[in-house]
Design a protein around this nucleic acid. Structure first.
Lengths: 233, 233
DNA sequence: GTAGCACTGTACGATTCCGGACAACAAGGC
DNA sequence: GCCTTGTTGTCCGGAATCGTACAGTGCTAC
């Protein structure tokens, strides 16, 4: 058994030594591969993941198979919020969008640890609050934001989690995430590039001017991030 | 002290006798007036409400004051999900959209009851899961749905909660909820009316053909409702 | 080094929705 | 019954985005 050690996942890092000790024996570190499914719609969730690099997308699925991303989870968070809320499944889909690594734990073990420690439970539930705010702001952004602002917001959120200027993304994937045309993404990326906010290349987007990007995102970026700082640290 | 009695709020009704007994002494029944603020952005939440008629809207607010509804709460649910998640406030705004009545409880008392009973806690958290799915589907609907589908979805959700064919709503309010032009709402309502799905009149919309309305909503309606049935009953 | 394939650039008309304006109408207060 | 005020009906040009199509480009596997 390894010694209790902090993780680069910010939720795990925010845990008290005792709470981390509850989880530690059941955490297993491993790779998170591109496109790996972490949760499938309406199927039992077996593992909960705490990424420490890369990120996963939570995608809402309509019955006609229309898909749109509703949330993004990286080293600041965890998958499996429905587990925390007492459901063993969710109608959403969650999969890795940018490869990385992370800890995982069996849902049963997580549930046991949450019962054993109120402080652990409260921390994780505060993250659920953060995630709800993120989803809500995705909703407002989808309703009112122009494509350039939505795209800027998405790139900023991805950048926060990948912690690298270069994001490995195709226009096709961006269009799926935002629920818009692929061609629209291409055009809008050109627009952002001509404003010197990003560089683009095949299968990648490189952030060049973060401040400018935040300006381009308008008011669509920031509230969930502030909520994270307030509630987690 | 009144005897423990069931409520027409479905969450309260789903509680065990013992759990209801924990809340009952602190619940106070009263009117929920049109436009009454139940939660203000980033202000301490003092009371949590269990409506048994009418409904409240949860509205996400951007820093530039752009607003869009992200959720709708009636007799099937409760306000104050952030309280359940260990936060005493939220960046969102919650207020009554259709007047009614409901129970309210001080947040402190609710917290104490949740600590005292795991089953109570779990039931309320399952409702949070339902609400998250609702918000996620608002996001997908905002991203991909045409206005007629979004409007149909909204009217169906309001109808579910008001349990009356006639909804007291102005076009102006609908436009605020959906984040679109008021004139766009007028035109789209006419379209739904010409399809004999609704009647309209000043300050009201009457549902005429519910099945047809569900068809008009396309795939945007139903998933959160199914999640409610699965998790609450 | 080249074939294949995924990705990107660009074009087109069509459609949806916007922003703004203004007139007509309905309902409640006096 | 009239007036006021909020609500609805309608219009305009214009912007954003769609759906679709196809050609060009650049990686990768052989």
């Amino acid at each position: 058994m390894l010694a209790v050690s902090p993780s680069s996942n910010r939720l795990l890092a925010a845990l008290s030594r005792a709470d981390l000790g509850l989880l530690q024996p059941h955490l297993k570190h491993g790779p998170l591969k591109l496109r790996q499914d972490l949760e499938r719609p309406n199927r039992r969730i077996d593992y909960v993941y705490f990424p420490d690099g890369g990120f996963a997308s939570v995608v809402a699925v309509q019955s006609n198979n229309t898909r749109v991303e509703v949330g993004l989870i990286g080293y600041e968070g965890m998958t499996g919020t429905s587990i925390l809320l007492g459901s063993d499944r969710t109608p959403h889909s969650t999969y890795i969008q940018a490869a990385g690594q992370g800890q995982r734990i069996r849902t049963l073990k997580l549930r046991q640890a949450m019962e054993a420690s109120k402080s652990l439970r409260m921390l994780l539930l505060r993250y659920v609050q953060v995630f709800m705010v993120q989803t809500a702001h995705t909703a407002i952004s989808n309703a009112r934001g122009r494509l350039d602002a939505r795209l800027a917001r998405w790139i900023l959120m991805a950048h926060d989690r990948v912690r690298d200027e270069t994001l490995p993304l195709t226009h096709e994937f961006l269009s799926l995430m935002l629920g818009v045309r692929r061609a629209g993404v291409t055009e809008t990326l050109h627009s952002l590039e001509s404003q010197k906010l990003i560089y683009t290349g095949t299968g990648r987007v490189t952030l060049r001017n973060r401040k400018g990007m935040e300006r381009a995102a308008g008011n669509s970026y920031g509230t969930p991030e502030a909520e994270f700082r307030r509630l987690i640290g």
